[in-house]
Write a protein that binds this DNA or RNA. Sequence first.
RNA 1: GCGGAUGUGGUGAAAUUGGUAGACACGCUAGACUUAGGAUCUAGUGCCGAGAGGUGUGCGGGUUCGAGUCCCUCCAUCCGCACCA
Length: 944
Amino acid sequence: MEYDFRTVEDKWRKFWAKNQTNKIGEDFDKPKFYVLDMFPYPSGAGLHVGHPLGYIASDIYARYKKLQGFNVLHPMGYDSFGLPAEQYAIQTGQHPALTTEQNIARYRDQLDKIGFCFDWSREVRTSSPEYYKWTQQIFIKLFNSWYNPKNNRAEHIDTLISIFENEGSKGVTLEILTGEIEKEVLPFSAAEWKSFDERKQREILMHFRLAYLGESFVNWCPAMGTVLANDEVVNGVSERGGHPIERKLMKQWSMRITAFAQRLLDGLNDIDWSESIKETQRNWIGRSEGCSIFFPFLKEFTPKDTSSMGENSSKIEVFTTRPDTVFGVSFVTLAPEHELVDKITTNEQRQEVETYVEKAKNRSERERQADVNTISGVFTGAYLEHPFTKEPIQVWVGDYVLVGYGTGAVMAVPAHDERDYKFAKHFGLPIKQVINPSNPEHSMEQEAWTEKEGEVINSDFLNGLQVKIAIKRAIEEIEKNYFGRGRVNYRLRDAVFGRQRYWGEPIPIYYKDEVPYALNYDDLPLNLPEVDKYLPTEDGEPPLARAINWKYQNEYNYEFSTMPGWAGSSWYFLRYLDPKNPNDLFSQEKVNYWKNVDLYIGGSEHATGHLLYARFWTKFLFDRGIIPFDEPFKKMINQGMILGRSSFVYLVIGENKFVTNSIKDHFKHAAIHVDISLIDNDKLNINEFRKWRPEYAEAEFICEEDGSYVCGYEVEKMSKSKYNVQTPDELVDKFGADTLRMYEMFLGPLEQTKPWDTKGITGVNGFLRKFWRLLHPTENIFSVSNELGHEKEMRVLHKTIKRIREDLDRYSFNTCISTFMIAINELTDLKCNKKAVLEPLVVLIAPFAPHFSEELWEKLGNQAGTVTNQSYPEYDETFLIESNFDYPISFNGKMRTKVNLSLQLTAKEVETYVLQLDEIQKWMENKSPKKVIVVPGKIVNIVL
RNA sequence: GCGGAUGUGGUGAAAUUGGUAGACACGCUAGACUUAGGAUCUAGUGCCGAGAGGUGUGCGGGUUCGAGUCCCUCCAUCCGCACCA
């Protein structure tokens, strides 16, 4: 009998569960370390081998930190609200809670098999009322907060109310609050504020709340019957399901994440995340510096209806990053949705403009994006006055201008902007050059000069300046003349927060006379009500409108939309700190101890969703004094995807005959995916294949010379339809959890995308058995010697300890596995059977192969289950000192031979000794060396 | 188009500060043993060459006694973003 992993692993799984070995408390005397995995959504498909990759890495690291004396928090839970369960509910009528429960049970079963040290007593589920009660409370806190641009932090809405009471609206800097506030809120005095009724006051406050109900253009997905946030839309279709998206003006709950744009950007500099994720977030936030410029209308074109617009109505505000080109403006273009379009269009142009706007508005996002090269637009008939030159400027409408970015209006400088150039060429509008290109070969006839380089010309006071200087100078002049002001613009939009769906957190809002009010904390949780169907009502209301007698104080309607998937996951890492706390989100004592996550491992696909929202909520909670840090995840590693290795058989077209890989090209063939369980080492199990599908039962096979049928392969994503899915369960059954853990790490660097190759797992399995044999030299009977390790053995041990520690410290898990293999190979060669050498190795491998390690630890005479409480072995430098070294001797940098020399020798001694050797003279070809480089302990290089 | 990452044997990969390229493992070849197996052990395995030797880290240059590693140019693949004013 060999190492029986089934018995051993089963024994320790039960032991850990019974003794709650992984339960962790707050030990304030110990330093803390918080290792977290990204929150899984428990899908019906269960786990494939790609999913646990990150969990294994974090588990190894968590166990390593534990052995280093840290108090390690390593929890797991479920992001259990979400669309798939709801879609399933719609199809089958089964309550999503039930499906979710079943999926979680399957996940838990799969996770338990792999031997993770999760503290399951801390498990959270976003869909349980004990959890979403607190998500709702955070929503209310956001609702009751505003962003104070003077203090640059979120504050309770009361501080805003007191400003209004004392100073009126002029005491608030409006511009940073976004949401088109400048246009929507008319100035008022303190006295006026006090005279407003509650409805009016609440309407004004709504423009400032961090969770607010506002009218905006949203991504409406008709197929799913809900709105989606920008990060849930990819290339104009929904990220999940790929359904078309329309832009629609709707009243929606949103989160004012834009108020935090600058801090979300700045914070990236202080966190240890991959450059690519940080860059993705920077792009998403999209900061651009420039200025806004007001172009006043020529008198006869000033719109008459100005009641709701304030004083800005006589001007159009544009945003530009190139104020240096202001003298090159030849027209202004408005987005089709721009609210002024209708008001300024002249009667002659009205017909044409309305047709165009109507068409542009109805185009879906996807159409609009697919069609970026078609130039379209229409003249409104209106004219503006250039602020500096006083020349008349035409106002156009064009769908290349986006309503959601900047002011929805651009000053067109065709000579120095590609889109403006194309637009001007297409419509025959003037092109006025104001920059002399720094590249003399550039032709203004061919294309615009868009580089921020060159000398300004034809531009009055800017003439002769270089672009970068001219930009600053232009802003100064614009501000001096009150034509506009320097301004920072962000691409980031406020995040739409309501979903017209059932399976999510109810938004804790009720309506009194159509005015939204937040629930009190005492009213929470606002439970998700039962409904007869998970579909919208006949009136198009969300599913929650179906709930019977679901009213606040039996009187007021609740909000019918629910929260999006990212609500619960934006703060879950905080609830783990104190998951059962019935009185608060978490206790201050615990949050002060555990603080933020030290190591976060997960995929990079959440770069602009979860990872941005969690940072946003963290900053908010920090501002409101609820947590003592403002970044959630100090260090993050993004594990690479594990791709499947699909196998193919080649069907001869028109026959029920398959041809083997090497000669397939001699036939007209079609490649067909074949289930990887029917393949061993690329060879097809023909009998099983015949049984796999009835139509192949009688198939013929043209084989290799040796009679085997060899399949082809391709590396692609794992999916059921490609028959290349490898589940961890199967591998645990065949090889054991410890082997699976080590093999997943052995595949390659954690961050890298890599193909799954089932074959290689035998190597790791063999390694563990080889290790086992060192302690079971004959007949699988445990036996170790109590002799002291001799020099060579001790060197192997200490070299290994050193390398493992160094590799773990730089998260290089794959090289750890090779290091272990090398150590066991060397000790096997040395026939080492000594406890003094092997026992430290058993502790060293505990984070990687915990079941294996526990078993050997116990056999070595230690108390069962205590290997997790040991100290991680330290290396002793004295064992690593070598007396001799095989110096590689190279000639002109090419290694030719080696000479074993004492490391005591100085460089000069090495040189003298080496040069007189016959072996070396042979290579010298009777020349005398020009130069001899000796790097002690490294190399000798002789230059001829 | 912009930004990020990656290019090393038949395969997954290693080489941490410039110093023996290919450790470790899979696969393959040959052999030993045998309850014929997806077990274990031994030897070999970058490429060319019988050998001496030559050659080799995507291509081409450069710096250096010495480059997978540093610098420049180009190419390929993957991932973001993309009418962002």
